[in-house]
Write a protein that binds this DNA or RNA. Structure first.
Lengths: 149, 149
DNA sequence: CAAGATTGACGAATCAATCTTT
DNA sequence: AAAGATTGATTCGTCAATCTTG
């Protein structure tokens, strides 16, 4: 097949449908997080990470590498979340211990509800509507992309 | 099938693979635009829109609705792009005419190259690796998602 | 001093308010 | 005054610089 230097209408249509679909999906997920829990996607990610860690205290650098974020982004965001009473820093100047991050009681409650609701959202909007073929196709594409990324 | 209130490992795997893949993909596309042309994805979108319009002058509100952006976002971005010599505003205070936006000569050259290169990127990273079956499945999924959005 | 954390300065996006045309 | 465009205030993310602790 000869390929020109611009996308053919057919190529463009697929590409455009795909990016639009992603956009619609992301927008809806974020809208629901904001509407039902008053948090952004970024805040939700932090809540999930701390939620997973359960009782263990987490360090900023751990969060940053887990989320693949800049450390300063984490620090800034934690400052804001702290001021809203969702997280806290346990600064133990003592010898063995490190500065740790924890969910507050409120933060934990919020995380519980939000994680649950989010699972429902993902099912409803993403997983349930997928046919077997679509699931396979998306899974294959994703694996390829991650492998080459 | 009974559904719990959290995602099963299998569900989570698909979901996670998909979001990670998107992230890898988006990151690479933006990296290339920045590296090869010194522009962001947002700036690229504006260049493409103006490029399509060819000689016709475009208004801010048209750009905004085409891109589904806030009008002020367009205005702010155009101010920056104007200061870099990529676009210009043709303010005709005359009666029938409206304030129009145009590419400069430099902007047009940049748009030409970037559109071409971007088409190659989309082919290489997205279109070419897809089989016919995957293409069909992804197209269907995208259309569903857009329809319900 | 070296790793880890924070802070400040800046770029970019959103929302509300203002200015400009017809 | 209504539509369209801009501007300003605020917030978030990034990068660079600084502070802190082992």
């Amino acid at each position: 097949v000869t390929k020109s230097d611009t996308l053919s209408p057919a190529e463009w249509e697929i590409w455009h449908a795909w990016t639009e679909a992603q956009r619609v999906f992301a927008r809806e997920v974020e809208r629901l997080l904001q509407r039902d829990f008053g948090i952004s996607k970024a805040e939700f990610s932090v809540l999930v990470s701390l939620h997973r860690a359960a009782e263990t205290e987490v360090r900023v650098s751990e969060l940053a590498s887990a989320l693949e974020w800049d450390k300063s982004r984490v620090a800034h965001l934690l400052t804001r979340m702290e001021s809203r009473g969702l997280t806290e820093r346990t600064e133990t100047g003592a010898k063995g211990r490190r500065t740790g991050i924890r969910l507050t009681a409120n933060g934990r409650d919020l995380a519980d509800s939000a994680v649950q609701a989010h699972a429902g959202t993902i099912r409803r909007l993403f997983l349930d509507p997928l046919t077997m073929e679509q699931t396979t196709a998306i899974r294959q594409w994703s694996d390829q992309m991650i492998a080459r990324g």
